[in-house]
Simulated scan of single mutants.
Amino acid sequence: MYQNNDTSLHGFILLGFSDHPKLEIVLSGVVTIFYLITLVGNTAIILASLLDSQLHTPMYFFLRNLSFLDLCFTTSIVPQMLVNLWGPEKTISYVGCIVQLYIYMWLGCSECLLLAVMSYDRFTAICKPLHYLVIMNSHLCHKMVIMVWSISLANSVLLCTLTLNLPRCGNNVLDHFLCELPAMVKIACVDTTTVEMSVFALGIVLVITPLILILISYGYIANAVLRMKSKAGQRKAMNTCGSHLTVVAIFYGTIIYMYLRPGNSASKDQGKFLTLFYTIITPSLNPLIYTLRNKDMKNALRKLFQANYKSTRSRRNWNP
């Protein structure tokens, strides 16, 4: 890998929101709160769906993967971000920046593909209910998840390696709060057309294609729901799909607005806030969205907290 002007020794400077010191104080509090919500909420969903045998279904298997992905996604960003927000040093080591860049790209792409897989699961459950468990068997579910993580990893390795091989001529100042691919491309001191075209092409394949598949799935789902004669059946179908559709709308809406808008249509700070939204706030909303609209998940979480409360209480009673 090409390195120049001792960038590997000095690392990178992350400007973030350093030109707004008062805003940094507010943001550090907001980021901390949402990070804690993400940790507690997603961990609770993973534990509840594992411990409750009624939730050992394909839908909750994919939901566990989404929660785990969100935990890793935010953890790859937030600790370093809080260090930079709290202290005068706005730096990240070269190795730290590279690790963050690869993980950020890998997990971001994984979420796009996983949401598409989850839409196929909902399509099968509603449009082919009698064959659902046969089609969405354990082998296929594991195979789909492995494929999601593998394709995303290959994409991350390809794009991040192309970006890191660009000569920077000693430039190590990133106008962002994380090591994001577009920010890394901007500090290159050569023509970056090839890399930008590669990013755009793979973005179409790995972002727009899953979105199109999601929309097609929900087109069939809407048609099937409208044909249902039972109002209770329609309500149940809308509840199971509503949570996923809400997450899709928030995640894809933010990403498409960010990356497909005209270059000069938004300020740099607006771009940072949008990145902040889909990398930190959206993962904290996912557990709330899935639990507020899902009776089975509410019951599983209630059992989890009751079991934890009883365990704590019994330990206290045994203490001399």
Results as ranks from 00 to 15, higher is better:
Gly87Thr: 15
Thr7Ile: 12
Thr32Met: 13
His142Val: 02
Asn165Gly: 15
Asn286Gly: 01
Leu55Ala: 05
Leu285Tyr: 01
Pro21Thr: 06
Leu133Ser: 11
Asn239Ala: 13
Lys298Glu: 11
Thr161Phe: 13
Ser28Pro: 09
Ile33Lys: 07
Tyr278Ala: 00
Tyr309Asp: 01
Asn286Gln: 06
His20Gln: 15
Asn155His: 14
Leu115His: 05
Ala249Asp: 08
Thr275Ala: 01
Glu196Gln: 06
Asn286Lys: 06
Leu215Asp: 01
Trp106Tyr: 09
Ile221Arg: 05
Trp106Phe: 11
Ile33Val: 15
Asp175Cys: 02
Val145Trp: 08
Gly242Tyr: 11
Gln100Lys: 03
Leu85Tyr: 14
Arg168Pro: 07
Phe200Ser: 12
Ala48Cys: 09
Ile98Arg: 10
Gly233Thr: 03
Ala154Leu: 10
Thr254Asp: 01
Leu9Asp: 15
Leu140Lys: 12
Val205Gln: 02
Ser198Cys: 12
Asn42Trp: 08
Tyr102Thr: 01
Asn155Asp: 13
Cys179Pro: 06
Leu285His: 00
Gln270Phe: 11
Leu133Tyr: 07
His139Arg: 13
Thr43Phe: 04
Leu66Trp: 03
Ser76Gly: 11
Gly11Trp: 06
Gly87Lys: 10
Leu69Tyr: 03
Ile216Thr: 04
Ile103Pro: 00
Met144Lys: 08
Ala307Asp: 02
Met228Leu: 14
Ser152Gly: 04
Cys72Gly: 07
Leu23Ala: 15
Met1Trp: 08
Val26Trp: 12
Leu47Ala: 14
Ala300Cys: 12
Phe251Ile: 06
Ser265Ile: 04
Ser8Lys: 09
Leu140Arg: 14
Leu174Ala: 14
Thr192Asn: 14
Val207Arg: 13
Thr57Glu: 10
Thr163His: 04
Asn294His: 05
Val190His: 05
Lys295Ser: 14
Ile204Cys: 08
Pro21Gly: 06
Ile151Trp: 10
Thr192Arg: 14
His142Ile: 03
Val195His: 05
Leu55Val: 04
Arg315Thr: 00
Pro283Ser: 03
Ser110Ala: 12
Lys186Pro: 01
Leu113Val: 02
His131Ser: 13
Lys236Glu: 11
Gly219Lys: 11
Leu15Asn: 10
Tyr102His: 06
Gln100Met: 09
Leu285Trp: 01
Val78Ile: 12
Lys128Asp: 02
Met147Trp: 07
Thr312Glu: 00
Thr32Val: 06
Gly263Ser: 05
Leu14Ala: 11
Phe123Asn: 07
Thr57Tyr: 06
Tyr218His: 14
Ala125Phe: 00
Val117Arg: 05
Ser67Gln: 03
Tyr218Leu: 06
Val95Leu: 10
Ser150Ala: 14
Asn317Ala: 13
Leu23His: 08
Gly203Val: 00
Leu274Tyr: 00
Leu51Phe: 03
Asp52Asn: 15
Thr254Pro: 00
Val190Thr: 13
His139Pro: 01
Gln54Asn: 15
Leu153Ala: 14
Val99Phe: 14
Leu82Asn: 01
Ser150Tyr: 08
Pro58Phe: 09
Ile13His: 11
Glu180Asn: 12
Cys112Thr: 03
Ser230Asp: 03
Val95Met: 09
Pro58Ile: 09
Tyr120Ile: 01
Asn239Trp: 05
